[in-house]
């Protein structure tokens, strides 16, 4: 089976949800015209990234009666889409969220599990932490969604893999940092390395799209890309430009790569569980919480 994937690498208006929605709808139409089956947008694509006190004013609910999601759900009858937004739950907690829409339905919502609150980041101050990492069924097979810092940690992609995801959809609003004599920022190099590694280690497809543009002095670098189950780059969007980049994924490559390299078949999940229980049961452990 083939899947034509469109990576929307866009700039956004900070807190300008209506303008951002209109850009989404225009790109969805364009992607459909170019034959895309699925279009994916960056983190917080409907709102902009450094929201701070704008957070409660841009929150929405992924339902047909929501004025932002209504037109997106209608558009999802044409092709599948993944968008980034702020969800306010019934208890008024705000989550950095990704929604996968298809055929007029919300198939899945992921709440960002890792909120970077260090260095230039302050997400934990404004948002609630997501508490689940789940794969979900689509008409192209089982997929998983993660948001930026989620895949700077190895465990969420690993969990999605065990939960059956064969296509990983990653979205970012990554502020570039680390200018050296290299032709890429350290951030861009790092994200490319880990996504290539996930595709290779999990013998799966990884599609990543990132913001472009600026918010005050922060610069979002773009560089959207798709990696195949051999860890090869299928497509790489340019840095720093708004683009719509299409890539045809031959999903049968999963069969060919895994016939050669049975990493998934041989994964010792029971061993992982035993060792995790031992490590987590040790009151003196030195890692995480």
């Amino acid at each position: 089976m083939k899947l034509t994937l469109a990576l929307a690498q866009i700039n956004t208006r900070l807190g300008g949800i209506q303008a951002n929605l209109e850009k989404h709808l225009a790109l969805i139409t364009e992607a459909r015209a170019q034959g895309a089956d699925l279009i994916i947008f960056p983190e917080l694509s409907l709102t902009g990234y450094v929201l701070q006190d704008l957070t409660p004013t841009v929150a929405c609910r992924p339902r047909a009666d929501d004025p932002v999601f209504h037109p997106l759900l209608e558009a999802s009858r044409q092709l599948d889409l993944m968008v980034g937004f702020v969800e306010e739950d019934t208890r008024n907690r705000f989550f950095i969220s990704a929604a996968y829409l298809s055929g007029g339905e919300v198939l899945h919502v992921h709440h960002k599990v890792y909120l970077p609150t260090y260095g230039l980041f302050d997400e934990g101050r404004f948002f609630a932490w997501g508490d689940a990492v789940r794969a979900f069924e689509t008409r192209f097979g089982r997929m998983g969604m993660l948001i930026c810092e989620d895949f700077w940690h190895a465990s969420p992609p690993y969990l999605l893999w065990l939960d059956g995801a064969d296509v990983f959809l990653f979205q970012s609003a990554s502020p570039g940092r680390g200018l050296t004599s290299n032709d890429r920022l350290e951030t861009a190099r790092w994200v490319d390395h880990i996504n290539r590694a996930y595709a290779s280690l999990f013998t799966a497809f990884v599609a990543h799209t990132n913001r472009v543009g600026y918010e005050d002095g922060l610069h979002f670098w773009g560089g959207a890309a798709v990696y195949d189950p051999d860890g090869l780059v299928l497509v790489q969007a340019p840095y720093d430009e708004e683009t719509l980049t299409l890539s045809e994924l031959d999903l049968n490559q999963l069969h060919r790569t895994r016939a050669r390299l049975p990493m998934l078949r041989d994964e010792r999940t029971a061993l992982v569980l035993r060792e995790m229980q031992r490590i987590l049961g040790d009151g003196n452990r030195q890692s995480g919480r």
Partner: peptide, 21 residues
């Protein structure tokens, strides 16, 4: 200590910043 930078990359980011802001 090497403070050398990629000048084309710096130029792209900084001119983009000026234009945007």
């Amino acid at each position: 200590v090497d403070l050398a930078i990629h000048v084309e990359l710096a130029k792209r980011i900084l001119t983009g910043f000026i234009h945007s802001e």
